[in-house]
């Protein structure tokens, strides 16, 4: 569906995308992961034809430089910061719908699809961040394109809005759309992606399934255990005996670093030893943790 072959993009002397080759198959959802400045957004903008580049990019086997309008008609793009003209929500949809040659019926139904049916009369400047993102997604869905490209679409959303938005994207992904998105949140990748491409300094350095990402990278989660003071010593020795490393004290219990798939095992071992666990919390690995790990291991 999307074929990127040896694409390089420079801004002056800075190589933003460095000889990247990747394929996204039809119906696949691929995440571009990496720190800020890794080249994720630049790569997406190259695929959209917004930036000039060296190399070749094809969408449905057509070179996007030779067929720019046709290529863009196949893509629904959701930018990181949706920016609209100061028009009413429904007028914005009509405007972009007209460019995409979409009939009014579709435009009217799209508002309900993204949950903005009560906000059609509002100016774009009157919408909240979450609503603007949903409007952006609505615009992207107007012509029912086979491909969705999302550039850190939840970066400006709160937790509730993020969850709603991701569910919306997942629904369309499950309907068979091909999705290419960038993110610096691992939980989004786990939720949405079939494959994750890790980018650093403009290069793809890892191409892995999300469920194997943790194992490949040795990503661990931190579990915060609230345990009574008189049981901490016993709990520490049991965890060390069972091979759980990274055990340390915190004010009200213990921090333990656990590999993916061993969280329940940890709790089981403690409960079998009759250690009273008052409460626990899981701290997922952040992108920063992953990046630090990768840099520390020569990636």
């Amino acid at each position: 569906m999307i074929k990127v072959t040896d694409v390089t993009k420079k801004f002056g002397n800075v190589v933003a995308v460095d000889s990247v080759t990747l394929n996204v198959k039809e119906g696949e959802s691929v995440a571009l992961l990496g720190a800020n400045g890794a080249g994720k957004s630049t790569l997406i903008k190259c695929v959209l034809g917004l930036l000039d580049y060296k190399g070749k990019i094809e969408i449905q086997n057509r070179d996007i430089k030779e067929n720019p309008k046709l290529s863009r008609s196949l893509v629904g793009y959701v930018p990181q910061d949706p920016l609209f003209y100061d028009m009413k929500t429904v007028d914005i949809l009509h405007f972009f719908g007209s460019i995409r040659r979409v009939d009014d019926k579709r435009i009217n139904s799209i508002l309900s699809l993204v949950g903005l049916e009560d906000h059609g009369h509002k100016l774009s400047s009157e919408l909240s961040g979450g609503m603007r993102q949903r409007l952006s997604f609505a615009v992207g869905l107007l012509s029912d394109p086979p491909i969705l490209m999302l550039d850190e679409p939840t970066s400006n959303l709160d937790a509730n809005a993020r969850g709603d938005f991701l569910n919306l994207v997942k629904e369309h992904k499950n309907q068979g759309k091909t999705v290419l998105f960038s993110s610096h949140r691992l939980d989004e990748v786990y939720f949405l992606a079939d494959r994750a491409l890790f980018m650093k300094s403009g290069r793809v350095i890892l191409d892995e399934k999300p469920q194997n990402l943790a194992t490949s990278l040795g990503i661990k989660v931190k579990i915060n255990l609230i345990i009574p003071e008189d049981s901490i010593s016993k709990a520490t020795s049991i965890l060390n005996k069972e091979g759980f490393g990274g055990v340390s004290r915190n004010g009200s219990g213990l921090y333990v670093e656990v590999e993916e798939g061993k969280r329940v095992l940890l709790l089981e071992k403690l409960l079998q030893a009759h250690i009273p666990i008052t409460d626990f919390a899981i701290q997922e690995s952040s992108m920063e943790t992953v990046i630090k790990y990768m840099e520390g291991n020569g990636y």
Binding site: L50, R72, P79, D81, L83, F96, I99, R100
Partner: peptide, 14 residues
């Protein structure tokens, strides 16, 4: 300056 031009160009318009 306000970013609407790149967004417009992401649609099938030249």
């Amino acid at each position: 300056e306000n970013g609407t031009l790149p967004y417009l160009l992401s649609h099938p318009i030249n």
